[in-house]
């Protein structure tokens, strides 16, 4: 076992992939500068050479499309977008091309492409530098969308994505980078074997999160317990394809559901989770209305004062969950 942070675990994933698979290369902005992507790509260019670690012009559309093209010709590229917001210039190659490719040609060809979009919010960076658009991509058939929340998943889901031979959007979050954990050496992993995971067993309420929000839920576990609320915490890990069984079964046991999402509510993953539970759990089981907490339905503000209101915090989430019990909602 070795000590890792979330970000050094991502780096370990790259090292594993680049060492063992000559068809893997990494392309995107800021790859020769440690500044853009924390230490998640530290010295990869020195170790594997600038031919396989390609820093690019400011051309997200072409870079993403080119990586998809390279994947059609035998490579397994990882595209890095240091902020999800920048990736929006690449929506056509992602949504019209990569996501549809296999289907349009009767399953004969598949882009083996991992597109890493980093959620990088806060710090008074404002509306165009803060977005968490995971739900958007999860709306698209033909794209897998993975959101590691834990240190081990940060590495293992990257490996699984790249080896899946499919178009995968891998979304990591700067607010998770400092978490620590001990990990076994990296290994090959099959993306299809990955399901949501129960991180905390409990019987009072099912709490569901993905990425950063799972982390927040874990942070309040003890406090909830000290208030006699025993939460069952489920980390989604992959939000497309959407695996509902574990969550549904958990709610059948607890009778309560709360979803925390770092994106917007309308047409988002929180809507999808609640719908899937409502559709599959008999009404009489519910002891309270399923509920959720998401971002206010506005773009991200810049000022610190407004950011404090805008983003979820341990206190806000705890207060919300506690009110479900206090008010017997």
């Amino acid at each position: 076992m070795n000590k890792f942070t979330y970000s050094s675990a991502i780096l370990d994933g790259y090292n594993f992939l680049l060492t063992n698979y000559s068809e893997v290369f990494v392309i995107g902005q800021g790859l020769w500068s440690p500044w853009y992507v924390g230490n998640t790509m530290k010295d990869l260019d020195k170790k594997f050479g600038k031919k396989r670690i390609i820093d690019t012009p400011v051309s997200e559309g072409a870079v993403t499309g080119a990586a998809i093209g390279a994947s059609l010709n035998g490579m397994k590229p990882i595209v890095v977008h240091p902020r999800m917001d920048f990736m929006l210039y690449a929506i056509d190659p992602i949504v019209n091309q990569a996501a549809k490719w296999s289907y349009m040609f009767g399953g004969q060809s598949s882009p083996s492409i991992t597109i890493r979009g980093i959620i990088n919010r806060g710090g008074e960076q404002g509306a165009q530098h803060s977005q968490a658009l995971h739900s958007w991509f999860a709306h698209i058939p033909g794209l897998k969308v993975v959101m590691p929340s834990t240190v081990s998943d940060a590495r293992d889901l990257l490996i699984a994505s790249v080896l899946s031979g499919q178009p995968v959007i891998y979304i990591d979050d700067r607010w998770l980078y400092d978490q620590e954990d001990d990990l076994l050496p990296a290994n090959k992993i099959n993306l299809n074997s990955i399901t949501p995971r129960i991180l905390e067993k409990g019987d009072s309420i099912t709490l569901v999160g993905c990425g950063y929000t799972t982390f927040l839920l874990r942070k309040i576990t003890q406090k909830l317990k000290s208030h006699k609320i025993n939460p069952e915490i489920i980390d989604m890990r992959i939000i497309n394809p959407f695996n509902k069984e574990l969550i549904t079964n958990s709610v059948k046991k607890t009778g309560r559901l709360f979803v925390l999402d770092g994106g917007w509510g309308p047409c988002g993953i929180s809507s999808e989770i609640i719908t899937s539970v409502v559709e599959n759990v008999p009404p009489k089981i519910f002891k309270s209305k399923p509920s959720r907490m998401t971002l206010p339905f506005t773009p991200a503000p810049t000022s610190k004062v407004l950011e404090a209101e805008y983003y979820p915090s341990k206190e806000k989430v705890f207060g919300f969950i506690k009110s479900i019990f206090d008010n017997n909602l």
Partner: peptide, 16 residues
């Protein structure tokens, strides 16, 4: 300085 009296009402800061 992200003040409400700013040219973007304090909603933008330096980049907006």
């Amino acid at each position: 300085l992200a003040k409400s009296s700013g040219i973007s009402k304090g909603m933008g800061g330096s980049m907006h």
